[in-house]
Design a protein around this nucleic acid. Structure first.
Lengths: 146, 146
DNA sequence: ACTCATCGTTTACAGTTGTAAACTGAATTT
DNA sequence: AAATTCAGTTTACAACTGTAAACGATGAGT
């Protein structure tokens, strides 16, 4: 059950490895290398490096299986995604986040269920939402807006 | 009018600089350094480096004003945010993006107008949305789901 | 004219990331 | 037992990042 708190961050390339292991639940390096060396054109050595780094930073755990290891996630996929997205958003101007969401949602394929969930969360939010969100890019003694 | 297509990416630290210039519309280095050296505890030299890199990579333009420069954005803030968010999302499993949105929206303060816009976009999307979005983490010949 | 304060540019340097070859030890084959 | 084959580990290396000191030119004050 993956749930550890990750110290380091997972890089873009490492993210590809995690997606394979998250989806399969667990995988040996042969499988990971087989899939990734086709998806991208990465050499086996490259993928081995990424796996090694993920183990070292605590994102993947290992179970010995004879000569080789079986890798499994130590962090949950949804939690990693949530954190990555929130971190990205928090870096942006608070005032502009809403429009960024609109754009992202327009660009993303979502299931009917996801859309209904989103609508209901948004409707609930509406009752307590502020009239406006102000720009937080400047210290208090400067004024301005995006 | 900022609109250029950016070749390189803007890093986290550089993003802080851009937010100042985006918000003020234009700024001299003294202003940028004044604000940022307080927000973080960056030395003036650090901020100068970041400004220089942003000019070199085409994110900031300059206008000479006597001995110094006035910096102005060459790329639009909303476009940069949209791209950053979409890029981040596209790196994740398609099946899990909806839940990531739900989490992000729960965590983000949005204005009533933003929420209404989001709801209306979502309602429009609902009519053509698929029943489910499947996992795209593996090649076709492997099966599996997040 | 000389000195001082600046502003922008150069140089610095360690850590991270992408990309991969080389090596090492154990298991499998002959 | 020797040779071969992998799986994992070490080493490599350039580019990018965060962080900053040092330097050089130019305008301002004396």
């Amino acid at each position: 059950m993956p749930n550890a708190e990750l110290t380091a961050t997972i890089t873009d390339a490492e993210w590809r490895v995690m997606r394979i292991v998250w989806t399969l639940g667990e995988a040996d390096s042969h499988t990971i290398i087989d899939i990734l060396s086709r998806q991208h054109d990465w050499k086996a050595a490259t993928i081995k490096t990424l796996i090694g780094r993920l183990v070292k930073k605590g994102a993947l755990g290992t179970t010995k299986d004879g000569r080789q290891y079986i890798y499994h996630p130590l962090i949950a996929e949804q939690a990693a995604m949530d954190t990555a997205l929130t971190t990205e958003l928090n870096q942006m101007c608070a005032m502009c986040r809403g429009k960024a969401f609109v754009h992202a949602i327009d660009e993303t394929t979502l299931s009917q269920d996801d859309i209904r969930t989103l609508i209901s969360h948004l409707q609930a939010k509406l009752t307590t939402a502020p009239t406006a969100v102000s720009c937080d890019c400047l210290p208090a003694d400067y004024e301005g807006s995006c």
